[in-house]
Amino acid sequence: MQVWNGAGDVPENPGPSVATLGIFDGVHRGHQVVLAATVAEAENAGLSSVAVTFDPHPATVHRPEQDLALIASLTDRLERLEATGLDAVLVVPYTLTFARAKPEEFVREYLVELLQARTVVVGEDVRFGRDNTGDRATMVELGRQLGFSVEIVRDITSDTGRRWSSTWVRELLAAGDVAGAAHVLGRAHRVRGVVVHGARRGRELGYPTANLRADDLGVVPADGVYAGWLIRPDLERQPHDASVSKRLPAAISVGTNPTFHGVERTVEAHVLGRTDLDLYDEEVVVELVERLRPQVAFDGVPALLDQMADDVAKVAGILEVPAPARPTVPAHPGAAS
């Protein structure tokens, strides 16, 4: 899949296309239906399929004080868009100047002149142009004027009757329901960040962790302990080597470490049975599969260690991997550190 970062990256004559547009935060099941329709229409017509998306999220430009976290980073969004079979994605830098374009100006410049769209595929709730004044009726009328057809994909709902949406994903993650979020997304929710140095208590306790600052990761689920995977993207991009572990089973803690009176919210991933990994300064992906329990403060290190051993055993069962032996630790490991 080609990625065009701004209009200047688009080839001078990219050829006619079938295009769609949206923020596609999370690329959830509703997005996937629209994207699948775009790809199918392009294949049937012998044209290229192109999605137009925006970065940063428009809400962060218009209402920066809200500090909206993304469900998926741009890197993950592009990976998920590629998985739908698109030929290309145009990432439009979203600015206040760009936001002032009228619906007709945006459609004419980007969809018609730049991408040579023969068909535009949109969902029922599509909005575009200045103050979101363009909607599906606007797109149909512009298609008549500018010479392209419009395919409107009706809203697809879940078996509960609720419409698939990014709002729903955010609600589920705020409640810690990562399994429910995965159902809406069509895959496990993940966060991506660079491993930083922590207090090293996990290593002292026999459970070393890769630490990520929660405020840098987008939408992080509610505090608690989770089963999931730690993925090393840099290794995934290298030639296949069966001896190198790229996707590792992990017990994941989200919160402030209340047993040790912590204040900074972090995501910490302990790779089951591994004490040899050096992940500092490496970008990793943490994929969250299932929540085990909320995060609580324990009355001392022995109680915490018992719970950690139980958590690791449960994580192994959920992920269907061998449970590691309980580590041997010093009699008084880092209790005051």
Rank of each mutant, 00 (worst) to 15 (best):
E171I: 06
S158I: 08
E82Y: 05
R80W: 05
L235T: 12
G218C: 06
P327T: 08
P64C: 12
F24T: 02
A72H: 07
T256I: 13
R192I: 04
D299G: 09
L319Q: 04
A88C: 12
M139I: 03
L114A: 05
H28K: 04
G186N: 05
D299F: 09
G273E: 02
G26I: 06
E236M: 14
V315C: 08
A242S: 11
G317H: 01
G147K: 04
H332N: 08
P249E: 14
E287M: 04
S243E: 05
L70A: 01
A227W: 05
A331E: 09
M139Q: 01
P294V: 00
T60L: 08
S48L: 15
V91I: 06
L279I: 11
V39S: 11
Y110W: 09
T75H: 02
R265T: 09
A182Y: 07
A175I: 00
E282M: 11
D216W: 15
A222S: 01
L115D: 08
G85N: 15
D177F: 01
L212M: 07
D234C: 13
D76L: 03
E104I: 06
F260C: 09
G15K: 13
P327H: 02
T119L: 11
S165D: 03
F260E: 11
V169P: 12
T266W: 14
G46W: 07
